[in-house]
């Protein structure tokens, strides 16, 4: 089916053409509606999880910011926010720096055991989180990392690494190696070549890998529950406890804030991706 209906289409074809669009529309609705529904619900003046008659009548009285106020004043939520903000960036820096180096190594032409190394480095993304969490809980308790800040950071860095490897190696596929040779022949040492020539070119890949690593850590809840202790309670953990025990509407306010953050991150990643595709001539857009 093409995107335009040809003038000679039969009635059946016409019906199917529009029916297909409607079906796709419904699926898009299924994808996006749940996320959008919680946004108005988070402004509910009551502690309900559904639209009150007042909200449906667009009565301004029925809307309020009380759940947001609760989020910003409640010490539990604030502590959770602080923990999240302290853990995710450090884990991201770790995975981006180690991951970028390794991705450059992996993109060389002769790497022994490349397949096996790649499989090991990608495995944190494939192994179910509950298994990683169980293993880390057992092992980190043995070496005294369980329940510590660094234990959580190391665990999250490990989980973020596959994303960095994947995005950076993808950028390096289109990288012109003669540029580094040219730099070397003009007298630049390898470190200068890396920072002045290679890094600026692969930066979009590194940044989007970093954003993936960041969101992995920022959203992660299974591993932190097992590897962390109460002192490392992050935002998703607090939400998880909230959803499981006393479900409070503050969760919806937090969720809305997180949705806004993800929209921001998504925009940055998309812009970077299009820029790098345009630079490499891979897409007309």
């Amino acid at each position: 089916m093409d995107h335009k209906l040809p003038p000679y289409a039969t009635l059946g074809q016409r019906i199917w053409f529009y029916a297909f669009r409607v079906i796709c529309g419904l699926i898009f609705f299924f994808l996006i509606a749940p996320i959008l529904t919680i946004i108005p619900l988070s402004f509910n003046a009551e502690s309900f999880f559904t639209f009150t008659p007042g909200m449906l009548a667009l009565d301004p009285e029925a809307y309020s910011l009380r759940h947001y106020v609760d989020f910003f004043t409640n010490p539990d939520w604030q502590q959770a926010l602080r923990n999240s903000v302290m853990i995710a960036p450090v884990a991201t820096i770790l995975s981006v720096s180690l991951g970028t180096l390794a991705a450059i190594g992996l993109s060389q032409s002769h790497v022994p055991f490349k397949g096996a190394i790649m499989a090991i480095l990608i495995s944190p993304m494939i192994v179910p989180l509950i298994i990683s969490a169980a293993g880390m809980y057992f092992f980190y308790s043995r070496i005294g990392l369980q329940g510590t800040y660094w234990g959580v950071v190391l665990a999250h860095a490990a989980l973020g690494i596959p994303f960095v490897i994947i995005t950076v190696t993808a950028t390096l596929v289109g990288f012109d190696r003669s540029l580094t040779r040219a730099a070397a022949s003009l007298g630049a040492n390898p470190v200068t070549t890396f920072f002045r020539i290679q890094m600026p070119l692969i930066l979009p890949g590194v940044i989007s890998g970093g954003l993936f690593a960041f969101i992995t850590s920022f959203d992660e809840v299974v591993v932190v529950i097992f590897v962390g202790s109460a002192a490392q309670q992050t935002l998703p953990w607090q939400m998880f406890t909230g959803l499981r025990e006393q479900i409070s509407p503050t969760i919806l306010a937090v969720a809305t804030i997180l949705v806004v953050i993800s929209i921001g991150l998504l925009t940055v990643v998309e812009l970077l991706r299009r820029r790098s595709e345009r630079l490499r001539g891979m897409s007309p857009g």
């Binding site: 090991i120 480095l121 990683s132 057992f138 092992f139 860095a157």
Partner: peptide, 21 residues
């Protein structure tokens, strides 16, 4: 050189992830 670039990450993953498994 390739292995030296990969080594830090490989060791990191082996310690923080593979060893627990």
């Amino acid at each position: 050189r390739a292995l030296l670039l990969i080594a830090p990450l490989l060791i990191f993953i082996l310690v923080t992830f593979v060893a627990p498994i």
